[in-house]
């Protein structure tokens, strides 16, 4: 091979090797914690449910990952996947809402900001809704409202507990008042679920604000939250602008809500599934004389322990 050919080949293979290099990074063998910047082996991080092994920061996860973490393998049955958002106001800012929706759908592979379905959690049947912050900030429009309402109505019919993992900036501006009314619609469905004496547990994750906190996020029989999540009604910037004063550091966090009595417990992600299972079991009708209440004579273990 002449030197000239060698250069030509090298030029051809150049971009390929660069691409390969990029893919290696995109594969994400290693991940950097956005909070403490420590690098961690991605598989270790995933095994810890994307909670930083160094600082305990809860890295944002997508709705499908959340479903995998909470629902027993092979039991997830998604519902109402065929609902699609529309642009009833012909809303247009810098871009039209219709274009924005299409872009979001292409980018995220989601159709709107919530997944709903029926599944089992440690063998216990549940109705689960998981919001996805990636899709327009998890904002609540007609599709989010309709899917959650259908989920709750179905849970009421089938006597299932409802769990909703919240992650949302609030109502979706682009659907105007239709979005605001979804708050009432979902709350109405929850009223019927409650009247049927069924359990509803919202899980507040980062961030849960605006119209979501002013409706179903605060209507749980028991309310759980992830550590350090932003949880509040008005955005921090809005409050700061209104009052023109510095706010306390823990203002509008899960811990702040716990301290002021609006959240029952702050549960780290790796313990969430177990805690939910425990809560659901504690709220099932009490069955008299279950097996573990049967009296076992204590003479037996003593005998086996006696030395020969």
């Amino acid at each position: 091979m002449s030197l000239f050919d060698w250069f030509a080949n090298r030029r051809k293979s150049g971009p390929i090797s660069k691409e390969r290099q990029e893919r290696e990074i995109a594969d994400g063998l290693w991940s950097k914690c956005p909070s403490c910047s420590v690098m961690a082996y991605t598989k270790d991080l995933q095994a810890n449910q994307m909670v930083c092994l160094e600082c305990g920061h809860h890295i944002r996860i997508y709705s499908n990952e959340r479903v995998q973490q909470l629902v027993d393998a092979g039991t997830w049955k998604p519902l109402d996947e065929n609902l699609r958002p529309m642009d009833p106001l012909k809303f247009r800012d810098r871009k039209s809402y219709a274009d924005r929706l299409r872009e979001m759908q292409d980018k995220t592979g989601l159709v709107d900001a919530v997944l709903t379905g029926i599944g089992q959690l440690e063998g216990l049947p549940i109705a689960l809704g998981v919001m996805d912050f990636r899709f327009m900030g998890g904002s609540m429009g007609s599709v989010v409202g309709e899917k959650l309402t259908r989920l709750i109505e179905r849970a009421t019919r089938e006597r299932l507990p409802v769990i909703i993992v919240c992650a949302s900036g609030g109502a979706r501006m682009q659907e105007g008042l239709l979005s605001l009314m979804q708050m009432a619609k979902i709350s109405g469905a929850l009223e019927r679920h409650r009247e049927a004496k069924l359990l509803y547990v919202p899980v507040l994750t980062h961030p849960t604000t605006g119209g979501v906190i002013a409706s179903f996020a605060m209507l749980g029989d028991i309310i759980l939250a992830e550590p350090q999540a932003t949880v509040g009604f008005a955005g921090r910037r809005v409050v700061e602008q209104t009052l023109r004063e510095k706010l306390p550091d823990d203002f509008q966090t899960s811990e702040y809500m716990l301290k002021h009595g609006f959240v029952d417990a702050v549960i780290p992600r790796p313990q969430l599934k177990k805690t939910l299972a425990q809560l659901i079991q504690l709220h099932q009708p009490y069955n008299h004389a279950p097996s573990h209440f049967v009296h076992v004579p204590d003479a037996l273990p003593l005998q086996t322990m006696s030395p020969d």
Binding site: L219, G232, F233
Partner: peptide, 18 residues
């Protein structure tokens, strides 16, 4: 939207009424 309103549970108060 204010600190006092947040502390007293603005979100919860509205949600409960709904």
């Amino acid at each position: 939207p204010g600190v006092e309103a947040e502390r007293l549970g603005q979100g919860e108060a509205i949600a409960y009424n709904l």
